[in-house]
Write a protein that binds this DNA or RNA. Structure first.
Lengths: 221, 221
DNA sequence: GAGGCCCTCCCCCCGCGGAGGGAGGGGAAA
DNA sequence: TTTCCCCTCCCTCCGCGGGGGGAGGGCCTC
């Protein structure tokens, strides 16, 4: 009997998955969680053999759950709404066996669950292509690794569309310091100006695209 | 009998919604579509009274479906994975009655369907707050349609990380002209500088994120 | 024809952003 | 300890970007 834990903040999705999986022989859904914190607790309490994990969740997200899973973890299948390049790679690095977009046909999900129970992977062709592309693009990522922690912080703020002055205030720095950081960021990334740097930051997922400008003007209201 | 059409590219979601709605009295799911094109056809063929519509879909997305719906449209409930400010406002403008995040409890969805059949709305508190905030803010982002064709071209180049000089060359313009366009773009979008404008352009999909810098530095490396 | 918007280019003004170089304190590794 | 990097801040210099005007021609609409 394969014991499955479903982790997703969307109740409809949980219901749908449970509905599908419960119809399968040899598969039992032992629990559902709407967020990462409860997922970790449920893993300890229920000892599922397979976990279906959503990436995008309020509070603790899927990546963080993967990071915090102990050594005797269940087999993890990441099931997410959209294909974000870096998240795929990050999830795979953190030990996810399969990474499926939610557009996947339900029988592929079942297949992935059975495979995961045996330690196997099911990769959608699109995801596989993403992985390949990402690996090929590796040099660009390594440039981002060259950034110091502080610089990465500054780049994050930069990718949100903030000016040097705003960044200085939000990090409690002098604006000259920010300028220093920005200059070395531009040099290390090999880009010409802050706009290009912001684009790199967004591409690398330092800031999810849809959150980019939100707090830029949300903070003062 | 309320005839419901479900439009979502995620099979799990469709299954979940159908499962939930089919258990309700007086509600009948008359069809499911995985994309916008088929949704429009299904609306004409099946004449549903309520449509549950996902925003994020391959091919024709939810907003486009809303735009193309004829005058005797079904009541539309937008059901989406995440709360993007502009999309909420845009969807409401285009006639969506309710806008629910997929995190919504299933009974709220049922409630929204029944309300929609009567022409009523069900708004999550979070979404309502978003609408209010957006309206108070003077509507910014959704005003991308306010841009002239030329301005949209410039914004596209901007979102690729190009400087005014580069844009001028690529469009065969004087750089003063580009500056004029950039200024009115900033004004119309209500943003402070070119970086923020670029982010808006990327968010609106004028340029796919992973294509943003490609030709910008691809030419010199 | 008059008014409207769009596209094009021009002007002045100036402040932010980015280059380049210098400097001191601190932490980690040799 | 010495060395090296990181973080912090300071300086000068200047060019690009952006604000605020103005202006002419083209096109469409009233």
């Amino acid at each position: 009997m394969i014991k499955v834990l479903i982790v997703d903040d969307h109740e409809v999705v949980r219901q749908g998955l449970r509905f599908v999986l419960d119809q399968e022989e040899g598969i039992e859904v032992v629990g559902e969680c709407p967020d990462g914190g409860r997922a970790l607790a449920a893993v300890r309490a229920l000892r599922p053999s397979v976990m279906l994990l959503d990436m995008v969740m309020p509070g603790m997200d899927g990546l963080e759950v993967l990071r915090r899973l102990g050594p005797d973890r269940p087999a993890v299948i990441v099931l997410t709404s959209f294909q974000e390049d870096e998240r795929v790679v990050a999830a795979v690095r953190l030990g996810a066996l399969s990474y499926l977009p939610k557009t996947t046909a339900v029988d592929r999900v079942v297949e992935a669950v059975r495979a995961a129970a045996r330690g196997g992977s099911v990769l959608e062709p699109g995801i596989a292509a993403l992985l390949v592309r990402q690996v090929r693009r590796g040099e660009r990522r390594s440039r981002l690794d060259a950034l110091t922690p502080r610089e990465r912080e500054v780049l994050t703020a930069l990718a949100k569309g903030r000016s040097n002055g705003e960044i200085a205030r939000s990090l409690s720095l002098g604006k000259e310091t920010v300028k220093t950081h920005v200059s070395s960021i531009l040099a290390k990334l090999g880009v010409a100006d802050r706009t290009q740097a912001a684009i790199v930051g967004l591409q690398q997922g330092l800031v999810p695209l849809d959150e980019a400008l939100l707090e830029a003007d949300g903070s003062q209201e």
